[in-house]
Structures are given as C-alpha cells and as structure tokens.
C-alpha cells in the first residue's frame, strides 16, 4: 500500500498542496481529477520523489519514502510524464530500456533486453522497436512511455494525464492497457486525469482536488455528482448512467465565479 499523509507542498509564497491524505491499494486504479493548476501533477511529482514535500510523509509498503535511496525509490514507483522531450535521437527499444535503469550498473543484461522485448511485443510496439522515438505519433509516444514505466517493474505506477493529446482509439488502448496491467499484475495506478468521463469509467476510486485540497474522494458514483462538479469546476452538468458508470455532459459554466471572488475579497 502507498499512503500519503498530511502532505504539504508549496513554493515561497504559494501553497500548492494542502494536507493531502491519499491511499493507493494493490490492484486498483485511482484517478486524481480537478481543475487546471490544482496540483495534480505536483502531487504525482511528490510521490515519485521528483520534488520534496515541505511537510507530511509518503509511505511505500510501510517504508518512509524520504528515507529511501533514489534507486530503491525508482524500483517501487514508476512515473509516466505528460510528454518526454528528446533532443537527441533514441530508438524505441532504447527508450523502453531506460526503464531498466534502476537495475543496470554498467550495461543492460540479457534479462533486461528480454524484458524489454517482451513488453514491446505485448504492447504491439515490436514493429517500431528500432524506429526513432521522435518520429512517432503522439499516441505511439505515449505507449512507449507507458512501456518504459512497465519495464521499470514497479508495484506503483503514476501517470500524468496519459490520455491528453491522444485520439479516441489511443485513449482507449492506453487506458485498457493500464487497466489490464493493474488487474493481472496486481499493481496499483494513480492517474492525473482531465477527462471526467474516462476517469470515472476506468477508475475504482477518484480523488477530486480543489485548489490543492481534497474536495471529495470515493467511488466515481460518489465523487462525480452535480453539486461537486458545480462547486469545483463552476460548470453545470447533467449526469446520466452508461454501463454502470456516471456519464457527465456539460451544459454551461455558472458565470465567472473565479473573477467575482477575486473582486469581492
């Protein structure tokens, strides 16, 4: 189990995350949703160890993450960034092989190569294995980044908006891959998501963030309500049911609540 307890993060004058309490269990998909700039990515970066929280603890399988070495941490938690800039040419195989870094000292072993080949095969990436990563489409790149995180062989997988910039088919493919990975390998995934419908369809639990605080958490049915969405996003929606998942259809924004607040205070 991965647990976040009393987490605070901020820069000099601004607090971005306030007192977050989150648990992530084996075999579940947890979506973090919320408006832009609400701290979703920051939260993931804190858990991955890319940035250090100001206060609070992150426990990974009973061990304090702040006391773990970088490599030990990298063997527990995998991270898929929104995009991966690459200034230099790199083949897809090498890009995925990077995921084996925590296990490599001088050179990748035979086992590392086989693991990567296996993953590429299972994710239907074998045809582009020796292509240049930069020349792939957005959907293929996302899959390769996901494959890298799989190669990292961790129990916890954090993904920062895995479906942004993807077409419908790639959105489905990527989320289905994550879903099947979580169920078959009994790993746990935490997704920062923008698309509320995809999030509620694919996740077991959701956390709705508002201005760095947890507004509401629980099963998609409990979190995705008219009132919650109205007060966090300032958008009127209708919610219907589709195959047992809440389906959200936006109607219109409820006036420029943010600006009004600014002036009144």
């Amino acid at each position: 189990m991965l647990s976040v307890d009393g987490l605070f993060f901020g820069y000099k004058n601004t607090t971005i995350l306030k007192n977050l309490e989150i648990e992530l269990h084996q075999g579940e998909i947890l979506s973090i949703v919320g408006p832009n700039g609400t701290g979703k990515t920051t939260l993931l970066k804190c858990i991955t160890g890319i940035i250090k929280p100001n206060k609070g603890t992150i426990m990974i399988d009973g061990k304090d993450a702040s006391r773990m070495s970088r490599m030990a941490h990298a063997k527990c938690v995998g991270y898929v960034p929104q995009s991966s800039p690459s200034k230099f040419p790199i083949t897809v195989f090498d890009a995925v092989l990077m995921g084996r870094r925590p296990y490599i000292t001088w050179k990748p072993s035979e086992k590392d190569l086989e693991t990567v080949a296996d993953i590429l095969k299972s994710m239907d990436l074998e045809d582009i294995a020796l292509r240049d990563f930069d020349q792939l489409s957005g959907g293929q790149k996302q899959k390769v980044l996901l494959a890298r995180a799989v190669a990292q062989d961790t129990d916890y997988l954090l993904l920062d908006e895995p479906t942004s910039n993807l077409d419908l088919k790639h959105q489905m493919e990527v989320l289905e891959m994550i879903s099947s990975m979580v169920k078959t390998n009994s790993v746990a995934a935490m997704l920062a998501m923008h698309d509320l419908n995809l999030a509620s369809r694919f996740s077991d639990r959701m956390v709705l963030l508002n201005a760095g605080e947890i507004f509401c958490s629980g099963e998609p049915q409990q979190v995705m309500t008219l009132e919650n969405i109205r007060s966090v996003y300032g958008v009127e929606v209708t919610i219907s049911q589709a195959n047992g998942h809440p389906y959200i259809l936006p109607i219109g924004s409820t006036g420029h609540s943010g600006i009004k607040k600014c002036f009144s205070s």
């Binding site: 890319i50 990298a74 991966s84 800039p85 890009a95 925590p102 990292q152």
Partner: peptide
Amino acid sequence: AGDESAKALG
C-alpha cells in the same frame, strides 16, 4: 529524456 524522467528512474 528530461530531468523529471531521469529523477523518476533513480
């Protein structure tokens, strides 16, 4: 591949 990916990979 970027500082963040590198950090996340240890």
